[in-house]
């Protein structure tokens, strides 16, 4: 287990380094002396590698640069927006899991029943609908027509501030969660169908276990193994969805910020935020590997 995790962590570090290289390389390729703008005028005559190392050194010491447009350090912008995005993606992913796992399991157990068909239709609908359409529809009905919820995301600062405003938080979270639920539930359904087909499920029934026991102690855990991997791998996708949702609901998180920076050619901010998202993706897949190892002993324990 330790060796396995150590190996995965090393791989994650390598991935992050590769991300920095690619991100910096892209900036360097962009026209208009962007690199010089980030690194200062003294770097203009330097080789790519020297520039990269200078930048990497700064990043590692916590200096992500400064936005000339907003006259604020990238670090400060990140400190303001990261928690907000964490709340949005965290809450919606949690809700998605809590809904999708039972829904997928139910669909698998009641395969081809009316419940299965209805739920399949709904998940297809959410899966196929772009977040901005889904969000707009939700705003139209729940905010504009019925005034249940706010049309704009919470504007208060910090994690506490965002969570203290459930009325405004509901629609952004719901928009993001519905799409995620659709992805997870469809995956959970097929994964649970696979597990239900396995002979060890028959064997558990043959030992006299009731259907509930068989599903909870044998089917659920085995079906979660591939789902956990999917969650880790879909983290970047969720962050991407968050970008759209944040813009739609004027919720000033990382997605909103990076969009603003990209539109206004605010290179230091784009660079810094892209880097953080890259790290988040690497951490996500590391977490997925850990969850995978917890669920599946074949990964945890090698053959003696």
């Amino acid at each position: 287990m330790t060796v396995y995790l150590a190996r995965r962590a090393l791989q994650a570090v390598a991935v992050v380094l590769l991300v920095t290289l690619i991100v910096f390389g892209l900036v360097r390729l962009a026209p208009g002396g962007v690199t010089t703008a980030v690194l200062g005028s003294g770097s203009a005559h330097q080789q790519f590698l020297a520039q990269y190392l200078t930048w990497l050194g700064r990043v590692l010491s916590g200096n992500l640069g400064r936005s000339a447009r907003l006259n604020e350090s990238v670090g400060a912008l990140l400190a303001a927006s990261l928690p907000r995005t964490l709340v949005l993606t965290g809450v919606s992913t949690l809700i998605a899991l809590l809904v999708a796992v039972p829904v997928g399991l139910l669909q698998a157990v009641r395969r081809s029943s009316t419940v299965d068909h209805v739920l399949r239709g709904l998940t297809y609908l959410c899966y196929g609908m772009p977040p901005f359409v889904l969000g707009s529809v939700l705003i139209l009905y729940f905010a504009v027509d019925w005034h249940f919820f706010g049309a704009e995301g919470p504007q208060a600062a910090g994690i506490g501030g965002v969570l203290a405003d459930p009325r405004d938080l509901t629609l952004p979270v719901l928009t993001l969660a519905l799409v995620t639920i659709a992805i997870f539930a469809r995956y959970m359904r097929s994964s649970a169908l696979d597990s239900l087909d396995q002979e060890y499920v028959q064997a558990a029934r043959a030992r006299g276990g009731g259907e509930r026991r068989v599903i909870v102690s044998h089917v659920l855990r085995n079906s979660l193994v591939p789902v956990v991997t999917l969650i880790g791998l879909s983290l970047p996708q969720i962050v991407g969805g968050a970008l759209v949702v944040e813009i739609l609901f004027n919720f000033q998180g990382m997605g909103w910020q990076i969009w603003q920076a990209a539109v206004n050619h605010d290179v230091p901010v784009t660079l810094g935020f892209t880097l953080v998202i890259g790290v988040a993706a690497a951490v996500g897949s590391l977490l997925a590997d850990i969850g995978y190892a917890i669920l599946d002993p074949r990964v945890r324990i090698s053959r003696p």
Binding site: A204, R207, G209, D296
Partner: peptide, 29 residues
């Protein structure tokens, strides 16, 4: 099932739950 009638399946590689300790599966009944 499991109390009055026990059953052994063909393929031992697929008839034991890979994520559950062997002892717990044996004692399940």
């Amino acid at each position: 099932r499991g109390n009055d009638v026990g059953m052994v399946f063909q393929d031992p590689s697929s008839s034991l739950d890979p994520t559950m300790q062997v002892g717990r599966q044996i004692a399940e009944s």
